[in-house]
Design a protein around this nucleic acid. Structure first.
Lengths: 220, 220
DNA sequence: AATTATTTTTAGATATATCTAAATTTATTT
DNA sequence: AAATAAATTTAGATATATCTAAAAATAATT
């Protein structure tokens, strides 16, 4: 099935909206997600329904179909693999990749993505800690743990930091840790639960147990 | 100036057509280059003319403008950098890259290309031997001669093969000829302009005049 | 120079994706 | 249950990019 860029974006939006919460997705919520108007959504979902990638009854909302979900997952797979590429190979920051990946995810090539996947070492997680679907569209959700529970040699990607505490955020910024940073534990200090970590394969820093308690990381 | 994918492709076509031969480009030649109809070209060149990226007088053909040339060269730069990436990093064969690069060249990002350039080590030539324009759109051209014009004993290095013809590229790959290959003419057959050549000091192969016409070599 | 052929342009259609405004259906209040 | 509010759909327009067929301009030939 060859969908247009726009159709792919609608499917992706519908997939994301049905992911968290109900399976039935409303016209308005799609419109909001895509920054467009409900009338445009009405037109498009009629079209997607004809193509059998969603199930749709007038005034009754939309549900993604198995074939639609498969397509959505492939687009998401491409998006996240490109994000890994941009961060790992081209030194993009975590917060700069989204817009570019939004474009790259629509590149159509039977071989490009499998080779990119191989080139990147078959990553299972994107720079935001989100799981990367495999070529069959299967997702393995990566568990999230606070840094304080890590042992030596464990590594993960920073996915969550309490945003209510400026002094913590300032410190993390100073030591070069941000969302998306790859963190590897070098050493655990039993006495006070502090940890020696390596951030993004470069600088080594000590963090107190109190800080380590507040930093969530996604692990494989 | 933000041009659509289609507008960029028109500019690129006009640039390529004015590159080899006259500066004035005809409506029909553009239509042929883009596998579209003259009527569509007429519409589009009026639009490009309004945007000042080409100079155009009704019934008098088209000339690319300085700002248009700048845009075309940036698209070409992106195309060729992506080709280098596909071949060098993702192990694509040089006959597989064109179609994908045609898509990748339209990705819009202020930083993506400069970082890709750096990642690739600032290459000056794509996998077909075509020069890669620098960020200012400057090109350094290599002196080139088609194989068909070689005489016995002449030798050179393969620097360019048309990247739009997979069947030719596949054949050359099969006989072990690639960019950088050293080619020496053993014998010229006057009858049909075919040549017996020695590739990289090892295998001897006959090539038709038609093929020899399309293979450019650098000579000392 | 007049005729014919070729090239180019215009006129009018089609398909995609979008919008506003109006109509319709469903949901919520009173 | 009727009235009101909210959500959704339809009708009709607009913009892009394309096409065929016809008209107009230019080029080539007699």
């Amino acid at each position: 099935m060859n969908l247009s860029l726009t159709e792919e974006n609608y499917l992706k939006a519908i997939y994301h909206l049905s992911e968290n919460g109900d399976k039935e997705v409303s016209t308005n919520s799609i419109a909001e997600e895509l920054s467009t108007k409900a009338a445009s959504v009405s037109d498009m979902i009629r079209k997607l329904s004809r193509k059998k990638v969603i199930n749709y009854e007038k005034y009754r909302g939309v549900q993604i179909s198995p074939s639609g979900e498969k397509i959505a997952l492939q687009v998401i797979r491409k998006h996240r693999l490109w994000e890994v590429f941009l961060v790992e190979k081209l030194d993009f920051n975590w917060d700069e990749v989204h817009e570019v990946a939004e474009q790259l995810e629509h590149i159509k090539s039977p071989t490009l993505i499998s080779r990119l996947d191989k080139f990147l070492g078959y990553p299972t997680m994107d720079p935001h800690g989100d799981p990367i679907p495999n070529e069959h569209g299967e997702i393995k959700i990566n568990p999230q743990l606070p840094l304080v529970e890590f042992n030596a040699e464990d590594q993960g990607i920073v996915v969550k930091v309490p945003d209510a505490d400026p002094s913590l955020l300032r410190h993390l910024d100073k030591i070069g840790m941000r969302l998306g940073s790859k963190v590897k534990v070098i050493e655990r200090v039993e006495f006070d639960n502090s940890v020696l970590i390596k951030i993004d394969n470069s600088n080594e820093v000590y963090l107190s147990g109190e800080m380590a308690k507040n930093i969530m990381l996604a692990v494989k």
